[in-house]
């Protein structure tokens, strides 16, 4: 379509991003830079602001303040250009119940401006890869939760997005589906696709991601590679889980007394 890619090779740039819902600040002064081809994990407990951040990036919500650029396109100023290079996979997926899986994928492909020549083989191979081929001509209303999730992932990949925004992808999937998605994401990453994945599952982030950000109450608490995060924590030999619990608990307490001991600098 168009050649985005800003000069530094940053695919996702968030600067002082803020989102307020009435009195609740869901995302607070979030600044992140993510390179092309990076697999980025966005980690946080329930209600931390992960979904809100992803919806902001996908253009579903408008920020209260701050800027977002995806592939060099400002999401607020040039929404259509930004959206055309994003593949968005929401956590809860409502689909057109009265279309078949295949029809849905054709619909998405055409909406993203693809030609039948290119999307037909793509759809066939995606359905095959996600083991949906036998279900391709059934109405979506008969799909299970996991099958819907697979279909949504297919639909997000049809137009060869350069950035994939994915919110809690593994929730509905069975072990086989999880394995499939892990392999797929890793492969896409190697091909230069940038992946921004939110999750509350530590092991998943640890296993897949190049860099991990920890967010708590809308604020960035820590960001870095797994090793960096470990190094910065007070106790070096612990797993990520302890760091995560420590950081998020520390924040809880810091409401009363300013937290310090961890030595982790939020401004990575």
């Amino acid at each position: 379509m168009s050649s985005p890619i800003s000069c530094e090779g940053e695919m996702i740039e968030l600067s002082r991003l803020k989102k307020r819902f009435g009195g609740v600040v869901a995302v607070d002064e979030l600044t992140l830079n993510i390179r092309r081809g990076e697999f980025f994990g966005f980690l946080g407990p329930n209600g931390a602001g992960k979904t809100t951040t992803i919806k902001l990036m996908a253009g579903l919500l408008k920020p209260t303040a701050g800027r977002m650029r995806i592939g060099g396109f400002d999401v607020v100023e040039q929404p259509l250009r930004a959206k055309s290079i994003i593949g968005f996979i929401p956590d809860r997926s409502f689909l057109y119940e009265k279309l078949t899986g295949r029809e849905f994928l054709v619909f998405i492909a055409e909406v993203y401006g693809l030609e039948p020549k290119s999307y037909k083989p793509m759809i066939a191979s995606l359905l095959k890869e996600f083991e949906l081929t036998p279900w391709g001509d059934e109405l979506i209303e008969s799909y299970s939760h996991g099958m819907r999730q697979r279909l949504v992932i297919c639909s997000a990949l049809i137009h060869h997005p350069q950035v994939i925004l994915v919110d809690e992808p593994m929730v509905a999937l069975d072990p086989k589906g999880v394995k499939l998605v892990k392999e797929l994401f890793t492969r896409l990453c190697q091909q230069g696709v940038t992946i921004f994945m939110s999750t509350h599952t530590l092991s998943l982030a640890e296993e897949l991601c190049h860099r991990i950000a920890i967010i708590h109450r809308g604020r960035l608490v820590a960001v870095g590679t797994r090793e960096e995060l470990r190094k910065r924590a007070s106790i070096p030999q612990t797993g990520l889980e302890d760091i995560f619990l420590e950081l998020t608990r520390e924040e809880d307490e810091s409401v009363n007394s300013a937290g310090k001991d961890t030595g982790v600098n939020p401004q990575a």
Binding site: A58, G59, L60, K83, F94
Partner: peptide, 14 residues
């Protein structure tokens, strides 16, 4: 479009 509106809203449709 109902609850499926996110599909339209996140796609580059004018």
């Amino acid at each position: 479009e109902g609850k499926s509106f996110w599909i339209i809203h996140s796609s580059p449709i004018n």
